[in-house]
């Protein structure tokens, strides 16, 4: 089963690398932030698959942090800049 988990993680890693293309040359900032979201979700899946392949259940904790980090960073990146009147 280890080979299957590794092959699945490899496919997901390829998907993430392709998604990075959009992050690098996305025309608007929103596209780049979408790339962050894709990388967060796919990264969680890769971590869980690696945890199954290497028999390391502790990687689920790292996946949990990834989920939190993706949500928080999307929220931080989409925050509006304060204009001088509001600040």
């Amino acid at each position: 089963m280890t080979d299957f988990w590794l092959a699945a993680a490899l496919c997901l890693l390829l998907t993430m690398a392709l998604g990075l293309v959009r992050v690098m040359r996305g025309p608007s900032g929103g596209d780049r932030i979408l790339g962050v979201q894709l990388l967060g979700t796919a990264g969680i899946a890769v971590l869980l698959l690696l945890g199954a392949a290497f028999d390391m259940p502790a990687l689920a904790d790292v996946a949990l942090i990834f989920a939190l980090l993706a949500a928080v960073s999307v929220a931080a990146l989409t925050r509006r800049r304060l204009t001088r009147e509001d600040s």
Binding site: G30, Q37, T41, I44, L48, A60, A63, T78
Partner: peptide
């Protein structure tokens, strides 16, 4: 299961924010 629920919540919120 909780990781998946957190991702669902975070993904929906992030999509709305964007």
């Amino acid at each position: 299961t909780l990781i998946w629920l957190l991702v669902l919540l975070g993904g929906a919120t992030g999509a709305h924010l964007i």
